[in-house]
Simulated assay, not measured.
Amino acid sequence: MVKVGVLGLQGAVREHIRAVEASGAEALVIKKVEQLEEVDGLVLPGGESTTMRRLIDKYGFMEPLREFAQSGKPLFGTCAGLILLSKEIAGYEEPHIGVMDIKVERNSFGRQRESFEAKLSIQGVAEDFIGVFIRAPHIVSVGDEVEVLSEHNGRIVAARQGQFLGCSFHPELTEDHRLAQYFVNMVKESKE
């Protein structure tokens, strides 16, 4: 059985743990850098990207996260996690982890009160996936190696580049675990 970590600094950690377990993997909340060695894949949950970055810096996670990414182990970023993965953030000088060849724009679907749900077609996952958008970013542009998996109203909301998966919405906030299952399968494949 593969073991998938969920970065436990901020965000919907418990919901991701539940989705990973429902997808047939062992799940572990990651609160210490050394725990990264115990997992085969890692989820970077939603939350507030600036706060998450502060906590990543405070607890010394930045370099270990970059090393985890370079080791070839899969990473899945949702909402703020997508922002952490991207190489470029509109209006910002520096990326965070910066391993996925995409440019994202923060809060591009509006503030908290403009949160909404939308039916999405996600390539390789589902034709009828309900995406929960809360202060969601969107992917402005992608590099040549990046596969666009889903769009909503002409904006890219899910993409994959090799072992990196990212989405604008919160798949963990529904009972539909098909996207978590897709990631768990990526982790299984990378381990084989």
Rank of each mutant, 00 (worst) to 15 (best):
residue 168 S to V: 08
residue 168 S to I: 09
residue 163 Q to F: 06
residue 157 V to P: 01
residue 171 P to Y: 13
residue 172 E to D: 09
residue 175 E to S: 13
residue 150 S to L: 10
residue 163 Q to E: 11
residue 155 R to E: 10
residue 148 V to Y: 13
residue 159 A to T: 01
residue 169 F to G: 06
residue 151 E to V: 12
residue 171 P to N: 12
residue 173 L to W: 01
residue 168 S to R: 05
residue 171 P to G: 11
residue 153 N to W: 14
residue 174 T to I: 01
residue 153 N to K: 15
residue 172 E to M: 07
residue 166 G to E: 06
residue 151 E to C: 04
residue 148 V to D: 07
residue 178 R to D: 02
residue 176 D to G: 03
residue 156 I to K: 07
residue 152 H to T: 00
residue 148 V to G: 02
residue 172 E to Q: 11
residue 168 S to H: 09
residue 174 T to M: 10
residue 158 A to Y: 15
residue 173 L to E: 05
residue 175 E to N: 12
residue 154 G to N: 02
residue 148 V to S: 03
residue 157 V to Q: 04
residue 161 Q to K: 12
residue 158 A to F: 15
residue 157 V to E: 06
residue 171 P to D: 12
residue 169 F to L: 09
residue 162 G to K: 15
residue 160 R to I: 03
residue 162 G to T: 00
residue 162 G to D: 11
residue 159 A to P: 14
residue 158 A to H: 11
residue 147 E to G: 00
residue 163 Q to N: 15
residue 154 G to I: 11
residue 173 L to D: 03
residue 150 S to I: 07
residue 165 L to T: 02
residue 169 F to I: 10
residue 157 V to G: 00
residue 159 A to D: 06
residue 147 E to P: 01
residue 162 G to F: 10
residue 166 G to L: 04
residue 153 N to H: 11
residue 152 H to K: 02
residue 156 I to N: 00
residue 154 G to W: 14
residue 155 R to A: 01
residue 158 A to S: 11
residue 150 S to R: 05
residue 162 G to A: 05
residue 155 R to M: 12
residue 154 G to L: 05
residue 166 G to V: 03
residue 147 E to S: 04
residue 158 A to L: 10
residue 151 E to R: 14
residue 172 E to A: 10
residue 164 F to D: 04
residue 171 P to A: 13
residue 166 G to R: 01
